[in-house]
């Protein structure tokens, strides 16, 4: 779920950028290290980024109206881990802005925090917690939790910018409203994407088991 261009007031745009940038710099630094170690990593990262974008560009028909599509971050975090996913997702989000007009430039910071950092991070935790017991459940929850947390964080971001009244109480009240209305599109989306993720990750595991480390 992208926050569109211009929707957040200036101070909140700045705030979310300030939160996202250190994580991204860390990601970029790690990436650079990896490239210095193995120059081939450049092509690998570029193609992984391409894969994340293409996955997120598969359009969902009918379910939710005009502009819903999978985030692809649940699958990405299982394949690449949370820090690489954060870095690559931020670029994928820039691409979604420039190639699909989804999201925006001033809201890129906020969208990176929700879709690139927090969502996949929790998806990864869910995956780690469950994978010892049942791999299918782990795949399912990686994607479902990543999407669900993205939706929760986005709603919070909107609530912080548009509180019902000054103070924490107002924020919580707004957050519940935003959560409520976006549940209409985001809950079905999270479930459908989780089913896709299960099938996709299962077949990747069958044919290229080395990619999904146990």
């Amino acid at each position: 779920m992208h926050i569109m261009e211009g929707f957040l007031p200036a101070e909140w745009c700045a705030f979310w950028y300030a939160l996202a940038i250190p994580v991204l710099i860390y990601g970029a630094w790690k990436t650079k290290k990896e490239i210095e170690r193995d120059p081939k990593a450049k092509s690998l990262l570029a193609v992984s980024l391409g894969f994340i974008f293409v996955l997120s560009a598969l359009k969902l028909p009918s379910v939710t109206g005009s502009c819903s599509h999978p985030t692809g971050t649940g699958v990405a975090v299982v394949l690449f881990g949370p820090s690489v996913t954060a870095f690559l997702s931020s670029i994928a989000l820039l691409y979604q802005a420039l190639l699909l007009a989804h999201g925006g430039l001033t809201t890129l910071g906020a969208n990176t925090v929700s879709m690139g950092i927090v969502g996949p991070f929790f998806g990864f935790i869910a995956y780690k917690a469950l994978k010892k017991f049942n791999l299918t459940a782990a795949f399912f929850s990686a994607a479902a939790v990543a999407d669900f947390m993205t939706y929760v964080v986005t709603s919070l971001q909107l609530a912080l910018a548009f509180p019902a009244s000054p103070g924490m109480e107002g924020v919580m009240f707004s957050a519940i409203r935003f959560l409520g209305i976006f549940a209409v599109t985001q809950i079905p989306l999270a479930i459908i994407e989780a089913f896709i993720a299960v099938l996709l990750l299962r077949s990747i595991r069958t044919y290229s088991p080395e990619v999904i480390s146990a």
């Binding site: 926050i3 699909l100 548009f162 409203r177």
Partner: peptide, 17 residues
């Protein structure tokens, strides 16, 4: 493209603040 987003969020703002 962002019609759904605008519709939903503006509705919340309108009825919440």
């Amino acid at each position: 493209a962002p019609a759904v987003f605008i519709l939903f969020s503006t509705t919340v703002i309108l009825f919440t603040i």
